[in-house]
């Protein structure tokens, strides 16, 4: 746009005017930001030709104006320079700002990059973590698999044992049945034995009776009752024998109250020793303890 102004003097003037106006404006207040909006409009003024004096005056006036314009121009230039300088400064500032911004950007970029790096690292870490977790999961999985395998084995074992148990139970039952059969036979044998024994018992009883009679006879033969005082007297003694019939102990368990009578009873049993006893061991055992009741008739 500035170049367009220099190629057209009309426009130059206009431009100067505008510029002057602008300068005024600028001197009062200038805002770069709104300049863009005051873009010159080409059809605002119409130039008109006038007389020599008037032209002279005009020249003069122009000269003056030139001069003024020149000074103004210088001023303007100066201002422009200043403006440029300012602009330059501004640009520099801007550049600086831009540089700063760039720097900032760079820093930001760097930061970003760092962040990215960090992020990447983080990502990497996370990935590692993830990998670890995954690994753990894999291990867990493996473990789970092992466990399930073990469980499976256990189950298998249990099943095997159950089977064994069943087998054993079956064997046990078979055994039991056999044992019961045996027991039944045994019981039968025992019953027979008991019957046999009962038979023996009755034989034993008769043998026992026989020997009791023999003992009674022997004791009565040797019993020397004291003279006179026996009427109504009773003396009970407990006698211990050893196999073979020898008397080892005579104890009065219920005396008659008459010392001589009781003494005669004890002596009679001892005197009759050894007492006749059966030879069969089973019966001899029975003839180990005998109670005698001495009860003279009359």
């Amino acid at each position: 746009m500035i170049r367009a102004i220099f190629y057209n003097p009309k426009y130059l003037l206009l431009s100067i005017i505008i510029h002057a106006g602008l300068a005024v404006l600028l001197s009062v207040s200038f805002d770069w930001s709104i300049k863009a909006e005051d873009t010159p409009k080409p059809n605002i003024v119409d130039a008109v030709v006038v007389d020599q004096s008037k032209v002279k005056a005009e020249i003069e006036k122009l000269k003056q104006a030139e001069k003024k314009k020149k000074s103004q121009e210088a001023e303007r230039l100066k201002k422009l320079e200043k403006k440029i300088r300012i602009a330059k400064q501004k640009r520099q500032a801007e550049e600086k700002r831009l540089a700063t911004a760039k720097k900032k950007r760079l820093a930001e970029e760097k930061k970003r990059k760092a962040e990215a790096k960090k992020l990447a690292q983080k990502k990497k870490q996370e990935a590692a973590k993830l990998a670890k977790i995954k690994k753990q999961q894999q291990q867990l999985e493996k473990k789970r698999q092992l466990e399930s395998k073990r469980l499976a084995e256990l189950e298998k074992k249990r099943k095997r044992e159950e089977a064994n148990k069943k087998k054993r139970a079956a064997e046990e039952k078979a055994k039991k049945v056999a044992a019961e059969k045996k027991r039944r036979e045994q019981a039968l044998r025992e019953q027979l034995a008991a019957e046999e024994r009962a038979e023996q018992q009755s034989r034993y009883r008769s043998v026992t009776q026989k020997y009791l009679g023999l003992i009674k006879n022997k004791v009565e033969r040797v019993w020397l009752k004291p003279v006179g005082t026996n009427k109504g007297l009773t003396c009970t003694v407990k006698v211990k024998l050893i196999p073979g019939g020898e008397v080892v102990d005579v104890r009065v368990i219920k005396g008659s109250g008459n010392a001589a009578f009781d003494r005669s009873v004890e002596t009679a049993v001892l005197k009759a020793s050894p007492l006749p006893v059966p030879s069969e061991p089973a019966l001899q055992q029975r003839f180990r303890d005998i109670t005698f009741e001495f009860k003279p008739l009359g």
Binding site: K216, W223, V227, A268, I290, F292, E293, K295, P296
Partner: peptide, 14 residues
Amino acid sequence: ALRIEITGGTEGAL
């Protein structure tokens, strides 16, 4: 327990 009753015997001097 075996029990024997003794009723006989001889009365006389010891």
